[in-house]
């Protein structure tokens, strides 16, 4: 524990990920993330961004390396991964709301079942969170009666309901119609300004420039480059240049 800086809440060291089909998705990836930091990961399709994000809450196991979340080792067999996941919220590209529950039901479910909160308390907190993401009027709607942007905001509220220390976002706006991207990014911005530690995979370069403390570029399973946004976007790294040339 001596070599850990007390600021890093996520320490990923020398991560290797080889899928059962032989696909080598992560190659020696190391990244430390500080408490309250917003890190944006960009990179071409198939570069391993999602895989890396998903190793941080063990939706994917790693083949080699170590990950510590708040000084808890994820590779330690004694670690209760469900406890770690309570601390690490995740927002998916495809929302993954529970279709059989209302917006409020989605938000309150895990606090009730996992944290064993009384229903009334969980729902009160849920209402406040939904208010915070601008959905006070839509609490009793089922996901099928919400727009994509609204669904993604419910998904964010649902993750926040567990009071996580870290939030992971995997392309949260990629499945949205352009006019709905803004409302979701606004929620994420306010979350960042509240001091939440966030790891965000996105193609929204504007968000990266404006909100990120650090931007990370991945390609072919490698972490190629990490910098502050100003330096990142003015870098002349040829691999990064090639990628930015394609997306911008």
């Amino acid at each position: 524990m001596t070599n850990m800086t007390d600021k890093s809440i996520i320490q990923a060291r020398n991560i290797e990920k080889i899928y059962p089909n032989g696909c080598h998705a992560l190659k020696n990836v190391s990244l430390d993330i500080n408490r309250g930091e917003v890190v944006v990961i960009i990179g071409p399709s198939g570069s391993g961004k999602s895989t890396f994000l998903r190793t941080l809450n063990q939706l994917e196991t790693i083949s080699d390396g170590t990950i510590h979340i708040d000084e808890v080792s994820l590779t330690d067999r004694k670690t209760n991964i469900n406890k770690v996941r309570e601390e690490v919220g995740m927002v998916f590209q495809s929302f993954n709301l529970f279709p059989h529950k209302t917006a409020l039901g989605n938000v309150a479910l895990s606090p009730i079942k996992v944290k064993k909160k009384p229903r009334a308390v969980a729902e009160q907190e849920g209402r406040e969170l939904l208010k915070k993401v601008g959905l006070a009027e839509r609490m009793n709607n089922y996901p099928s009666h919400l727009s994509g942007g609204q669904q993604q905001r419910v998904a964010i509220a649902r993750a926040l309901a567990m009071h996580p220390k870290i939030m992971l976002f995997d392309e949260p706006t990629s499945a949205l119609d352009p006019e709905m991207v803004g409302e979701v990014l606004d929620v994420m911005k306010s979350l960042a300004s509240d001091g939440m530690t966030m790891v965000v995979v996105t193609h929204e370069m504007g968000f990266a420039r404006e909100v990120a403390d650090r931007v990370v570029f991945m390609e072919e399973g490698e972490l190629v480059f990490e910098e502050s946004p100003e330096r990142f976007f003015s870098s002349d790294n040829p691999r990064l240049q090639r990628f930015l040339g394609q997306v911008l």
């Binding site: 939706l59 406890k83 309570e86 919220g89 995740m90 998916f92 996992v114």
Partner: peptide, 18 residues
């Protein structure tokens, strides 16, 4: 049921049975 449902539930700290 899409695998995303299980992933979302697990990412919220639910165990397999929950």
């Amino acid at each position: 049921i899409s695998p995303g449902q299980m992933e979302a539930a697990r990412s919220l700290g639910m165990n397999y049975v929950q």
